[in-house]
Nucleic acid binder design. Structure first.
Lengths: 210, 210
DNA sequence: TGTACATCAGTGAACGCGCGTTCACTGATGTAC
DNA sequence: TGTACATCAGTGAACGCGCGTTCACTGATGTAC
């Protein structure tokens, strides 16, 4: 932690200020001077640390990317299947939690992806890696075993689109979700049943399958 | 059709030019002068017909809204259920087709909803009406009959998020989708199974249910 | 421990680019008699 | 049918706003001897 030079400290403060602003305002609406004054600094200091506003978002995105990668590495070797509703719920919960923690980055990246093709590519890249993970899971799911690989990938993309878009819709301007538990259950029910073909009966007995 | 004054004609040409540009470029990247020169007009003429760029998007959105409303009115009285996979496929197909036809409007509105809170509200309003329709369907579906109303609405929102976001991802820069049939099947499978709990076996015999 | 100099961090007024928007004007179309 | 005037459609150079970005400067911190 500590042992940061003054400059590193300021850079981190600018990033933190941008993250705070991104929760309540869109990336396009945030001016460079909004960020510096949120950080309690003069306008000019921004350009000591970033070439422009996009560079700051890229830096945030890189941090986010790195953090996600760390999570993925951590989970390598662990059992990853989608055999049961609980497996799906665990995945949905993990996505939800990561979304919540990196809400400013996710909003900023998604919004910027609709502004410029540079960030569109970046957003695509991030999403693709997530789609890979889901595609693997789907391919390894007995219920989907007869699906060709490209169709499995398309299903995975649909799931990721659902997760991203629904999560984006659930967090209010203060960065909190009204009913996280219900949201996670709704996603789990739709995805688990959609992929596994077994309706989740929370707390009830599993129904006999034919 | 005919009997349009010169002015109405020009207004329509400006809208058409904007629609063309929206397919390949983002709303934010399109300048007012891009639209006028695409329409083969001088810059100044724009402001005879629209107060600013947002006003043109609002006009496009209003056209779109009206067209959708007409479709909804047309379908009132028709049987609308989600009892079978075919019902779901019909709904997905209808959404897909409307999305394709109004691709510029959908892109423009979604992109603008990430720029300003005005268009965010507008986008929300559009989406909400679609969510209402799906929520009614879900509430009337036997497999979901025991779901409380607010959870049914949340499921409906998830379905609409999925449809919007997946469709947005499927159309390339030239406004065409690579594999529309596969996309519709993927969405149908996920939604039908997710909501009905019955895996669709296209072309195969329906499996005996327990 | 003190002085002199170098580098780093930060300031904020001023500058200027890009783009939206205006406006004085031209040409076309419509109307009155 | 022709002329005179009014309105409408369209032009494009010029203007100016807003915001990103610069830069000459100040003050703080670090280093050498």
């Amino acid at each position: 932690m500590a042992e940061r030079t003054k400059g590193q400290q300021t850079e981190a403060e600018l990033k933190a200020a941008a993250r705070r602003l991104l929760v309540s305002r869109s990336y396009a609406e945030i001016k460079v001077t909004d960020i510096t004054s949120e950080a309690g600094k003069a306008a000019g200091v921004f350009y000591r640390y970033f070439t422009d506003k996009d560079a700051l978002l890229r830096a945030l995105a890189a941090d986010f990317d790195e953090a996600l990668h760390a999570v993925v590495v951590k989970h390598v070797g662990e059992q990853h299947t989608l055999a049961t509703v609980e497996d799906v719920r665990a995945h949905v919960e993990a996505f939800w939690t990561a979304y919540e923690r990196y809400l400013p980055e996710r909003r900023g990246i998604l919004q910027a992806s609709m502004l410029s093709s540079e960030f569109q590519r970046f957003h695509h890249g991030l999403r693709d890696r997530l789609v890979d993970v889901w595609a693997d899971h789907i391919a390894a799911t007995p219920a989907q075993a007869d699906l060709p690989a490209d169709r499995a990938r398309m299903s995975a993309l649909a799931v990721v689109c659902l997760l991203e878009s629904f999560c984006y819709s659930q967090f209010a301007e203060d960065g909190t979700a009204k009913d996280a538990a219900a949201a996670i259950e709704t996603l789990t029910a739709l995805i688990a049943t959609g992929l596994l073909g077994t309706p989740p009966r929370r707390g009830g007995r599993a129904r006999a399958r034919s």
